[in-house]
């Protein structure tokens, strides 16, 4: 199909979202906390990138940096974020606002609290259309009902009049997705969209995100701590640790031959169904203090493969394959796996 070919060419040309050496800091009473420290990440058109890492590694702050929604006193101090040819960090607040919800949409971890309790679901979708598409009330409302159909609500007109507290968490997340889809964004940033949901509902939501992505061709940056989620839907995966991306590559390559000891650790610490009861391999230790990030390798204290060089130097990105990079000095030869 011609359409597909041209889309693929476009995708090969330039990434939709390009984050280079992003550094985001929070000034706290106990010092400057570097939540993101030189993170580099790409999302190409129409692909789903999984951004994985444990709590506090800087995933969400990265997402909020993209949208210019960092909570006070957070600010981006270095690096670049390019989206669709524009540098987002240089945009004035009005241009940034008009981009949000129109070209970049976001869904959040707690769908029930991300919806305003005092407005109906339909209204909360319709206001996006009134803001960005300058629709009038009846038209926006009609479109909101359509959008609710697309996120699989059997009775969308009735649902539009209901309030968030009348819905389950999964339903709220579907409303959030309908809202995100409203203007046909090029990029959906989904910050732990399934974490707060029951397992069965999680699968439904992931399935829905996949379906919507296929239908609309939008790119998705899926932030999660759950490798299972990534394995199901992502085309590429970036692993984040202590404020930077330590490994990034195609999903299968990354899952089959993880290069970074942290990635390997994450993969081993997942529970498996086969092989009977077992101990989970937790990674010992904790993330370094973001107000006192070390100058050497961030993972040094917790690393099973560390060598002397790791104590002294910070490993730069190293290319393993065409699109597989890792920040580690040690080459995990087959016996190390």
């Amino acid at each position: 199909m011609n359409h597909d070919i041209s889309k693929r060419r476009q995708a090969e040309a330039a990434p939709l979202l390009e984050i280079r050496e992003l550094t985001t800091e929070f000034e706290t009473p106990s010092g400057v906390a570097r939540a993101v420290d030189g993170a580099t990440l790409e999302v190409r058109r129409g692909e789903i990138v999984g951004l994985v890492g444990e709590s506090g590694c800087g995933k969400s702050v990265t997402a909020l940096s993209i949208l210019g929604l960092l909570p006070h006193p957070g600010r981006v101090v270095a690096g670049e974020i390019r989206f669709d040819g524009r540098s987002l960090l240089n945009l004035d607040s009005e241009s940034m606002r008009s981009l949000r919800g129109r070209e970049i949409a976001m869904v959040f971890q707690e769908p029930a609290s991300a919806l305003n309790p005092v407005f109906s679901c339909g209204e909360q979708i319709a206001e996006v259309l009134r803001t960005h598409r300058r629709m009038k009330h009846p038209q926006a409302r009609a479109r909101a009902v359509e959008l609710l159909t697309r996120v699989r609500f059997p009775d969308p007109a009735r649902l539009a009049d209901r309030y968030p507290h009348e819905l389950s968490g999964g339903m709220c997340q579907r409303v959030m997705l309908a809202m995100a889809l409203a203007c046909g964004p090029k990029l959906l940033v989904a910050d732990e969209p399934t974490t707060a949901l029951d397992v069965t509902v999680q699968a439904q939501i992931l399935d829905l995100i996949l379906e919507l992505q296929r239908d609309t061709g939008m790119a998705v940056l899926l932030i999660t701590h759950d490798l299972g989620v990534v394995a199901q839907v992502a085309t590429r995966v970036a692993v984040m640790y202590a404020g930077r991306v330590v490994e990034a590559g195609a999903r299968d390559a990354l899952f089959e031959t993880p290069q970074h000891p942290y990635t390997s650790g994450l993969l081993r610490s997942r529970p498996r169904l086969s092989g009977g009861p077992q101990r989970l391999d937790a990674i010992p230790g904790a993330l370094p203090d973001p107000t006192r990030l070390p100058g050497n390798c961030r993972f040094f204290d917790r690393c099973p493969r560390r060598v002397e060089r790791c104590r002294l130097e910070d490993p730069p990105p190293r290319r393993v394959r065409a699109s597989h990079e890792v920040r580690c000095f040690v080459d995990p030869s087959p016996e190390a796996q």
Partner: peptide, 8 residues
């Protein structure tokens, strides 16, 4: 925050 993310 969600309202801001919608571009309102």
């Amino acid at each position: 925050r969600a309202a801001r993310a919608k571009g309102l």
